[in-house]
Amino acid sequence: MTPKQAFTDEELTAFLDGEAPAELCQNIEAQMSPELEARMALLDRGKEQAIQAFAAALNHAPDCDLSESAVPHPGTMRPAAVFGGLGLVAGLVLALGLGTWFGQPADTSAEPWHVEVAAYHALYVEQTLNAANMTAEENAQRLQALSAVLGRDLSAAAEIEDLKFVRAQQLGFEGAPLIQMAFLADDGTPVALCILRQQGGAQDVAQTNLKGMSGASWADNNLRFFLIGGNDGNATKRQADAFHALLVGA
């Protein structure tokens, strides 16, 4: 009998990232055990934390000021004169012909939490959700708990046609619970339904486009909904209408 190999965190990380050599992959798969799965789940959780944090950081980037009055911060790194120069970014845009590359105008009509959600979701790829590894029972338990947080039964949303429910998790926005239900479309496109507990007026389904993705939002008196993912506006509208019918309350 071949003795079991002790794998390092580096090897497991490379395996999880699809960067491990074939031989190592075979060894890991051959020796898969609950203990090994637990270690990989732990490492996966760390990765998820990092992605979330950097997604949030993106939204705190300063505006790209293209005006001649764009004065750089004095900063502590170097004297301002060294870093200085006016309209640097504007100059770069001209020099490199990057009219749409820098300083893409923000959608000023978008609600702030929609922008946050879109920035986070923009980082999702099919593999992100394929790695979720939630069992149906775990998902049901999680949905039950999150339904209690919102005061709304979310279980029906997991059964929507055309989308495969993968997992749900609780996030937050300005102190209010924000529930994310993540789905995969048939073509592997990640789609997220995010629900913010916030009182306000009811709103019908309205479509939008954020971070290059199609979105739709609606609301009732207690919850606000935002669906985001993919580029097919018709599919988004169809899914939004279905979610609206399943979840909308008083």
């Binding site: 390092t8 965190d9 990380t13 732990l42 490492l43 959780r45 760390g46 990092a50």
Partner: peptide, 15 residues
């Protein structure tokens, strides 16, 4: 590889 593994583990520990 080492930096990624260490970062993943540290973040998981912190949570």
């Amino acid at each position: 590889m080492s930096r990624l593994a260490a970062a993943r583990r540290k973040l998981a520990e912190d949570t």
